[in-house]
């Protein structure tokens, strides 16, 4: 959008970098594909929202962040957590509601978090990641932490007051906040283009006096290059930056949603632009062998299967866990 020159082009992707990004996407794909099945089979309780089809945004942005950087995410947050290096086994155990889960079985898919990795949590309130992420950016600035705070949100969240208030605060306080909109076209069941007259989320940034750019959210290299530049910009003290990544949600709003509201063929067209296929095609073009990429995908599946086998064996939380951590001493 307004700042191609500022944000893009400072980093150039190499095959090695894209290879790692592909591996992150493969892990997210393997994890969520199996989680979707396990939910269908009633092995995972509660509500589950997957980001299948959107892996390039999580991998591209997640890989652009540094150790210590903050991430505040959404109910559709597995990918962001995995891209920030959260432990697959501890995540799967949490989704299975086990006592050894990363949140001791008290968070679940919608609230999964690992503050030690900077992940302040998935969040089940649409738009909540924005004020929280901006608050983390405030800590970074006032305490001199030198950290970037990435707040992920969907395009459905931009009609919430929380979006407008938080973006304005990030702007007036010049905070190192990376505001990442995953525009997957659907706000829960509704085509979000019917919910606003403003065509692009990035357009809204200008109304708060901050810079933004739209990127192909199914091209992991493009997302990563933009996020690297935007994060560097935040770190230099240039204030917040908004990324709008255009992508598509393959599954329903939640697992089990049959999506009767989606037009025919729409999904087919987007699946042809599967972010893993886009990346694989480019990698093959640079001379990477298909077998290598297959191997990456196999390794991801093996890792996920092992986490499932382990989670199945784990006991539920002890009853005392229900009463722990309400208040701190």
């Amino acid at each position: 959008m307004s700042t191609n020159e500022t944000a893009a082009g400072s980093a150039s992707g190499t095959a090695t970098e894209e290879f790692d990004l592909f591996a992150t996407m493969a892990l997210i794909r393997a994890f969520e594909t199996r989680v979707s099945e396990l939910y269908r089979d009633s092995e995972i309780p509660g509500f589950v929202h997957t980001s299948l089809g959107q892996e390039a945004v999580a991998a591209g942005v997640g890989s652009a962040l540094a150790d210590g950087d903050y991430v505040a995410t959404t109910h559709r947050g597995h990918g962001h957590c995995l891209a920030r290096g959260m432990d697959v086994e501890a995540m799967m155990a949490e989704l299975f509601a086990r006592g050894e889960g990363i949140c001791h079985g008290k968070g679940g898919s919608m609230h999964i978090a690992d503050p030690a990795k900077g992940v302040l949590g998935a969040n089940a309130i649409v738009g909540a990641s924005l004020p929280l992420g901006v608050g983390a950016a405030l800590s970074s600035k006032l305490l001199g932490q030198g950290r970037v705070s990435a707040a992920f949100f969907g395009e459905g969240a931009v009609n919430q007051g929380a979006f407008h208030e938080a973006v304005n605060l990030a702007a007036i306080w010049d905070l190192p906040a990376l505001l990442v909109c995953e525009n997957n076209i659907y706000a829960e069941f509704s085509d979000s283009r019917r919910m606003t007259r403003v065509p692009g989320v990035a357009d809204r940034a200008a109304t708060y006096g901050i810079e933004s750019e739209t990127v192909d959210g199914n091209d992991v290299l493009a997302v990563n290059e933009l996020a690297l530049a935007a994060a560097a910009r935040c770190r230099e003290g240039a204030g917040p930056f908004l990324i709008e990544a255009e992508t598509y949600r393959w599954h329903g709003h939640y697992e089990g949603d049959a999506q009767p509201y989606k037009p025919e063929h729409e999904a087919t067209a987007w699946r042809e632009r599967d972010p893993l296929v886009v990346s694989r095609t480019r990698l093959l073009g640079t001379g990477v062998a298909a077998e290598q990429l297959d191997e990456i995908e196999n390794q991801a599946s093996t890792r996920v299967e092992a986490s499932i086998e382990r989670a199945r064996q784990l006991p539920p939380p002890e009853l005392e866990e229900a009463y722990a951590d309400v208040y701190g001493e």
Partner: peptide
């Protein structure tokens, strides 16, 4: 909503 939410985010991260 914005600044109270930001205060909560700030409290989670050191302030």
């Amino acid at each position: 909503m914005g600044y109270v939410g930001a205060a909560v985010g700030a409290a989670m991260t050191g302030l």
